[in-house]
């Protein structure tokens, strides 16, 4: 497969000055990204996750040409982003989840007309792309509405369309589903899946929502302290982190702990409610079926492990292994 994004021992070092006394200052170097190497093939859809301050957004900023790396080699579509920022801009799309680039007081369509001219998109292609995006993202009735009147979900869809009008080969999404309701999340995810499948657009997305990754990405990269700590399938991440999901079961009455098939086990009992932990890599269906068959059930729900917990666990395990 052709490597579309290539990072070779990329580094980003910031100098932080901290006030330590009335006039005394301390200088300290912070390695936000540390010898980071990976490649992403054209047409891949990759989740890029990690705790806050891990170096995620610094990486995205280097990939988009906003920041200049302090060391290493970085190429996107064969271009050095920091040197040829404007040339690359024509070939990439960026969506910042919490920051709209749409014109607040103007109808949505006006922002698209601006993109049309700013990116010098040929008329025919602009019209074709607009029609397609309007249809897929269900924007038809929103085009004439001032952006300030759109809901968060509508605005996110509007922003995604704005980032795709010029047919970028790669799309960077920073927390695309943050703050969205369930329906909007589903719609955004469906669209991204289609985009990736039909147009082979390379997608790199950062998120705190594991479901985004689960439903969209065949591959996930985890960064922590500026280093890549995992690169592979999501299922593998759960194994690596020994991530566990939790099944919360409400029974009709108080009962002794449910006898679940290993490795699932009851971790907590509170009156008629019981918590069962089971490996995140295994489907919940079998376990659920078994409980339904054998116990008087009122309600149940599955809780996903959150990314922070998985990564924390990965770290704990790695340290354990390092010190036998």
């Amino acid at each position: 497969m052709e490597a579309f994004i290539e990072l070779e021992r990329v580094e980003k070092v910031f100098e932080v000055r901290r006030r330590t006394g009335f006039l005394r200052r301390e200088r300290r170097q912070v390695r936000a990204v540390d010898a980071l190497s990976f490649t992403v093939a054209r047409g891949e859809m990759v989740g890029y996750i990690g705790p806050n301050g891990a170096g995620k957004s610094t990486t995205i900023k280097m990939l988009t040409g906003i920041l200049t790396p302090s060391g290493g080699r970085l190429r996107v579509a064969g271009i050095d982003p920091s040197r040829e920022r404007t040339r690359l801009a024509h070939r990439m799309g960026v969506v910042f989840g919490q920051r709209t680039t749409l014109w607040w007081d103007l109808p949505l369509i006006d922002s698209y007309k601006l993109m049309h001219r700013m990116y010098r998109i040929p008329d025919a292609r602009y019209r074709e792309n607009l029609d397609r995006l309007v249809e897929h993202l269900d924007l038809g009735e929103l085009l004439d509405v001032p952006v300030r009147q759109l809901s968060l979900g509508q605005r996110m869809r509007g922003d995604i369309a704005a980032a795709l009008l010029h047919d970028p080969e790669v799309l960077y999404l920073d927390e695309p589903t943050i703050g969205l309701d369930v329906v909007s999340k589903t719609r955004v995810r469906d669209f991204l899946r289609e985009l990736n499948a039909e147009r082979a657009t390379t997608v790199l997305l950062t998120t705190h929502d594991l479901q985004d990754i689960e439903q969209l990405c065949s591959r996930v990269m985890v960064i922590d302290h500026g280093r890549l700590v995992y690169d592979g399938a999501l299922a593998g991440l759960h194994e690596a982190g020994e991530g566990e999901r939790t099944l919360v079961v409400d029974l009709e009455r108080e009962l002794p702990p449910i006898e679940a098939p290993a490795p699932a086990r009851v971790v907590r009992v509170e009156g008629p409610r019981q918590w069962l932990a089971f490996p995140a890599s295994e489907p919940a269906a079998g376990l659920v079926a078994r409980i339904v068959a054998e116990y008087p059930l009122v309600d149940l729900s599955v809780r996903e492990p959150d990314i922070e917990a998985v990564i924390a666990k990965m770290y704990a395990d790695r340290t354990d292994r390092a010190v036998p």
């Binding site: 910042f96 920051r99 990116y119």
Partner: peptide, 13 residues
Amino acid sequence: DGSFDTLLVRPVP
């Protein structure tokens, strides 16, 4: 407020 970054991803000066 960080919104300066959004200007740097556009293909114009």
